[in-house]
């Protein structure tokens, strides 16, 4: 297992949903690699397609309602070419998933140990004693103080933080190479959030797993991620290392997003507001820069007709050429600004 190998290679993947009989792209032409031993954060606002990307990798879409193209190469297998039974050999075994709402993600009528050992039922040949032992081991690994007691409880008897630990235990039960965490801490208090992120990081180190962390919270990204991909309107607009994204953000959207966060030193100022709205799936323009309508003061010729990714530094890519001409309307500095 080499640390730098791409074991997940997402090539030109688009996922379209059927709305009123027509298919509309929720994500379009995504190219992304995930390595072992890293946390890749996918960050963006609701509707940007980050969760769709996760469920596409997991093969959780109803094939009648979606149309998926491209290729997802996972350790030499194209996941998108698999049928449901084939996919089931990967789901839960080599790819684990963590969900946003830990209460609804657990079956309310089943005890915790049954819900964890269910994943072992399908991917291991352990005896029931061994499974029970493994369940307790997993609960201990995710930081549950009294595993034996928790194992016999029902989801509603646990706190939100404990439920999320159980979800993580399910995701890592078979030591997957890839863990997809979709907003794993959004429903939790900040102190619990910090603990859960610690658990995730520890597991990534222990299992040498690659983690895709999907979140809208830039703070969580800055604290946790090794690499970051920023998504807007179904596309990746910028990707790079966490340092590159937070210290030298390039794309106008990334910069705007960072500026709209409440900061320490502007308590009495208005927050920066990005103009306009994200277009709905049905109204998404198929050509041109999708972010252009939200920065109307940037001249049209600054944008590419068919925006592509441009490398600005090793590992740091930005969509469209407009980043070279971007400035905030209330600030005079043009072009790139270092923080």
């Amino acid at each position: 297992m080499t640390n730098t190998s791409d074991f997940l290679d997402i090539k030109d993947v688009s996922t379209a949903f059927k709305i009123d009989g027509h298919f509309y792209d929720a994500i379009s032409h995504i190219n992304l690699q995930v390595h072992h031993d890293e946390i890749l954060a996918i960050v963006g606002e609701s509707g940007c397609g980050k969760s769709t990307l996760a469920t596409t990798i997991m093969g959780l879409h109803d094939p009648h309602e979606t149309r998926i193209s491209g290729e997802i190469d996972f350790e030499g297998t194209n996941l998108l070419a698999l049928d449901d039974a084939g996919f089931n050999r990967f789901r839960g075994a080599k790819i684990g998933m963590i969900f946003q709402d830990p209460l609804s993600a657990l079956n309310p009528l089943k005890r915790i140990d049954d819900q964890i050992s269910e994943v072992l039922d399908y991917h291991t040949t352990l005896s029931s004693d061994e499974k029970h032992h493994r369940v307790l081991e997993l609960l201990d690994q995710v930081g549950i103080v009294n595993p034996a007691r928790t194992a016999r409880q029902f989801p509603h008897e646990l706190s939100g933080g404990m439920r999320q630990r159980v979800i993580i235990a399910i995701a890592i039960a078979c030591k997957p190479d890839l863990i997809i965490a979709d907003e794993p801490t959004t429903a939790l208090d900040v102190t619990i959030q910090a603990q859960i992120l610690d658990v995730l990081r520890a597991i990534q180190k222990e299992n040498h797993a690659g983690i895709i962390l999907i979140t809208h919270d830039l703070g969580v990204v800055a604290e946790t991620a090794d690499r970051v991909a920023v998504m807007y309107a179904g596309q990746i607009v910028e990707q790079g290392s966490a340092e590159q994204i937070f210290n030298q953000p390039q794309h106008p959207y990334t910069r705007s997003l960072l500026r709209s966060m409440p900061q320490r030193d502007d308590e009495n100022d208005d927050l920066y507001v990005i103009r306009g709205n994200v277009p709905s799936l049905q109204k998404m323009p198929q050509t041109g820069d999708r972010f252009a309508p939200r920065i109307p003061w940037i001249p049209a010729d600054a944008h590419e007709a068919q925006p592509t990714m441009h490398q600005v530094a090793p590992g740091h890519e930005v969509r469209c050429t407009c980043y070279q001409h971007f400035y905030f309307p209330d600030r005079t500095t043009k072009g790139r600004v270092a923080k």
């Binding site: 997991m58 959780l60 449901d84 039974a85 996919f87 089931n88 050999r89 990967f90 789901r91 839960g92 075994a93 684990g96 998933m97 969900f99 709402d101 609804s104 993600a105 657990l106 079956n107 309310p108 269910e118 994943v119 399908y122 991917h123 979800i167 399910i170 995701a171």
Partner: peptide, 15 residues
């Protein structure tokens, strides 16, 4: 369409 069924699918449980 519930979340726990999605979890079960993510576990690799056959339909």
């Amino acid at each position: 369409h519930s979340d726990y069924v999605r979890t079960a699918r993510a576990k690799g449980v056959p339909s």
